[in-house]
Measured scan of single mutants.
Amino acid sequence: TTYYDVLGVKPNATQEELKKAYRKLALKYHPDKNPNEGEKFKQISQAYEVLSDAKKRELYDKGGE
């Protein structure tokens, strides 16, 4: 599973699309609303952290993490 899959976006997604997808999923899986989905929330946050940063995203796209 790639970070793009976690957020449900395509690899060519814009920053705005990433932000929108992250917010939607973060609300859905937030531990306050969904106590059993803490791990999913962490995955979503990690994916967004990497993909929202241009340098980290470039490194990730080249095969790094």
Rank of each mutant, 00 (worst) to 15 (best):
T1N: 13
T1P: 14
T1F: 14
T2K: 05
Y3P: 04
Y3S: 01
Y3K: 02
Y4L: 02
D5G: 05
V6T: 07
V6F: 06
G8A: 05
G8M: 06
V9F: 00
V9D: 00
K10Y: 08
P11K: 11
P11A: 10
N12C: 11
A13E: 02
A13N: 01
T14W: 01
T14H: 04
Q15S: 11
E16P: 05
E17C: 05
E17G: 04
L18G: 00
L18T: 01
K19G: 09
K19C: 13
K20F: 11
Y22V: 02
R23L: 15
R23C: 15
K24E: 14
K24T: 11
K24H: 09
A26K: 10
A26N: 05
A26I: 12
L27T: 09
L27V: 10
L27I: 11
K28A: 09
K28N: 06
Y29G: 01
Y29C: 04
Y29W: 06
P31H: 07
D32W: 07
K33N: 15
K33V: 15
K33R: 14
N34P: 05
N34F: 08
N34L: 06
P35Y: 06
P35V: 07
P35F: 07
N36P: 07
N36S: 11
N36K: 10
G38Y: 15
G38T: 14
K40F: 10
K40G: 04
F41Q: 02
K42D: 07
K42T: 08
K42V: 07
K42N: 07
Q43F: 08
Q43K: 09
S45V: 15
S45P: 00
S45E: 15
Q46M: 13
Q46W: 10
Q46C: 10
Q46S: 06
Y48A: 01
Y48I: 04
E49W: 12
E49M: 10
V50E: 04
V50H: 05
L51R: 00
L51P: 00
S52F: 06
S52Q: 07
A54C: 10
A54V: 14
A54H: 09
K55C: 13
K55T: 13
R57W: 02
R57H: 03
E58I: 07
L59K: 08
L59F: 09
L59P: 03
Y60H: 04
Y60W: 03
K62F: 07
K62L: 12
K62S: 11
G63Y: 15
G63F: 15
G63M: 15
G64F: 15
E65H: 13
